[in-house]
C-alpha cells in the first residue's frame, strides 16, 4: 500500500506523472490548488505498486511516493 505526498506549491499540473504511470493509478483532480492548477491524485491506492516512476519523472520535484506502514505490523 502506497501513498503520494504532493508539494502543492511546486506542482504546476503538467500531467507528466499521470500519463507515465504504468498502472494508471493517478489522475488529475477536479479541485484547484493555491496556484490555480489541477493537481494529480492517487485514485487506485491498491493498484499502485510503488515503482516511484512519477517521483523520478516529476520535473518540479513535487511528488514523493511513500509506503504506508501499518502500526500493528
Amino acid at each position: 500500500m502506497h501513498v503520494i505526498e504532493l508539494n502543492e506549491h511546486w506542482c504546476k499540473g503538467c500531467r507528466v506523472c499521470v500519463f507515465h504511470c504504468p498502472t494508471k493509478s493517478l489522475r488529475i483532480a477536479s479541485r484547484f490548488t493555491m496556484r490555480g492548477i489541477h493537481p494529480p491524485e492517487l485514485v487506485e491506492a491498491e493498484r499502485c505498486n510503488g515503482c516511484r516512476l512519477c517521483e523520478l519523472l516529476c520535473p518540479d520535484f513535487a511528488i514523493t511516493v511513500m509506503e504506508a506502514v501499518s502500526v500493528n505490523a
Binding site: M1, V3, R52, E55, T64, A68, V71
Partner: peptide, 15 residues
C-alpha cells in the same frame, strides 16, 4: 489512512 509513513530518500534528496 491509518499507519505510519516511512520516508523514502527522494524527499531527503530534495532537502
Amino acid at each position: 489512512m491509518s499507519g505510519l509513513l516511512k520516508l523514502k530518500t527522494a524527499a531527503e534528496l530534495r532537502q
